[in-house]
């Protein structure tokens, strides 16, 4: 299931929901807000999403992971809005028969998300508010 939401998510509940009787593993990734970025302190973050397209892209990525790696279940949750240091940003979870499928599928999904799902971070630093774009950072207005 794909969710794009403002509120936090329950990692334990999502983990439990991934299990099936045929699954031999559950592999999860949780992205969180760091207190530094490129050596600068980060006090908080806001996240913008182009929701319709993000949902379509995440559904496509989940389908690709199921086809490529034969996973049992997939859960993806991405948050938007204002976040504090330490807050959860994203949950990616898969269940699969064996660990190789699980690790590879989870890695594939987070890597693809970072390439093509239209979501952007803004970091609040002592130098101002900075848009994060791909691997680079662009200075934005206040």
């Amino acid at each position: 299931m794909i969710k794009i939401q403002r509120e936090d998510f329950d990692v334990g509940g999502l983990h439990a929901s991934l299990k099936t009787r045929g699954s031999g593993c559950v592999v999860t990734f949780v992205g969180t807000v760091r207190d530094t970025s490129d050596g600068r302190p980060v006090s908080r973050m806001s996240i913008e999403v182009y929701e319709g397209m993000a949902r379509a892209q995440l559904e496509a990525i989940a389908g690709e992971a199921a086809d490529k790696f034969g996973v049992d279940r997939v859960e993806v949750v991405h948050r938007y809005g204002d976040l504090e240091v330490g807050d959860n940003i994203v949950f990616i979870g898969v269940s699969a028969g064996h660990r190789d499928q699980g690790f590879e599928a989870c890695r594939y999904m987070i890597d693809e998300l970072k390439k093509r799902v239209p979501i952007w971070k803004r970091e609040y630093t002592p130098d101002g508010v900075v848009w994060v774009e791909g691997d680079r950072r662009e200075q934005g207005p206040g």
Partner: peptide
């Protein structure tokens, strides 16, 4: 049609 910079989610 939508225009945007490289994405940075996750």
């Amino acid at each position: 049609v939508a225009f945007f910079p490289p994405v940075s989610g996750g």
